[in-house]
Amino acid sequence: MMSTKMTNTIKRRYNRISSIFNLMDNMMPEGWRKELLKEAQGKVLEIGVGTGTNLPYYPDNIDLTAIDFSPKMLEKAKEKTQKNNHAVALLEMDAENLIFEDNSFDTIISTCVFCSVPDPVQGLKEIHRVLKPSGKVLMLEHMRSDHPVIGKGMDFLNPIGLHIVGANINRRTMENIEQSGLKVESQVFLMGSVMRKITLTKKC
């Protein structure tokens, strides 16, 4: 697991940009969120809720818990729940160390989160642990391009984004998923190989 120092550094960066994060988050096409979140059902956990951009798109008949390790982000998300009357439990929590019991959730959501989790494999292992055997993980994630030239360019530029906002643009997310014990049920390429909609389940 990555050091507490790294986690705290990234947390401070996200606290710092919380006031403008909603503008950054809204750069993702609304249709991608709607398509993903309409599949949420049962007891749902959102990892990295940020300022709550996803909250208006969830179905009504779910039991929603949403976490983030940035208290400033959670303040913004709470404002959205108050304005829109959304029933959601908002908790400050690290994705690498979830407090929930094993096999707790029917659906787990992440949208552009695993670029910033300091130890993404540990975070994904925690998702595997708290997901019910019949459950699904629904993800919208950006990652390192499969194109050799573009991928190397992302490697070169990555330190800039990491320093400013704590997000990596060159994460090898599919390899990290493989190490976590989760199984790829489907993946849809939304923007070349960089942006993908991914559905995961537990391996048998």
Score class of each variant (00 low, 15 high):
98 L>P: 01
92 E>F: 03
166 G>E: 02
77 A>N: 06
98 L>V: 01
21 F>S: 15
156 F>Q: 09
7 T>C: 09
196 R>S: 12
89 A>D: 09
14 Y>E: 13
53 T>Q: 12
7 T>Q: 15
168 N>V: 09
123 G>P: 08
78 K>W: 06
107 T>F: 13
109 I>N: 05
201 T>L: 03
77 A>M: 07
178 E>R: 10
56 P>C: 01
124 L>Q: 04
151 G>A: 03
189 F>A: 09
149 V>G: 01
151 G>I: 05
172 R>K: 14
11 K>F: 02
119 D>V: 04
19 S>V: 08
100 F>S: 03
198 I>K: 02
66 A>E: 02
89 A>R: 14
2 M>Y: 09
185 E>R: 10
134 S>W: 11
99 I>V: 15
15 N>I: 07
160 I>H: 07
144 R>Y: 05
60 D>T: 11
164 I>K: 09
186 S>N: 10
176 N>M: 13
16 R>I: 00
21 F>T: 07
100 F>Y: 15
35 E>Q: 12
154 M>H: 15
203 K>W: 07
10 I>F: 14
18 S>Q: 10
73 M>L: 08
18 S>P: 11
89 A>L: 14
18 S>A: 15
146 D>G: 06
57 Y>R: 06
117 V>L: 04
128 H>S: 13
2 M>V: 11
106 D>R: 00
77 A>V: 07
194 V>R: 02
170 N>Y: 07
105 F>W: 06
138 L>A: 03
194 V>S: 04
65 T>L: 00
135 G>P: 03
141 E>W: 05
171 R>H: 14
120 P>N: 05
154 M>K: 13
148 P>H: 03
109 I>C: 00
107 T>D: 11
154 M>S: 13
65 T>Y: 09
142 H>T: 02
156 F>C: 05
120 P>H: 03
63 D>Y: 08
84 N>H: 11
39 E>G: 02
196 R>V: 15
179 Q>F: 05
92 E>T: 06
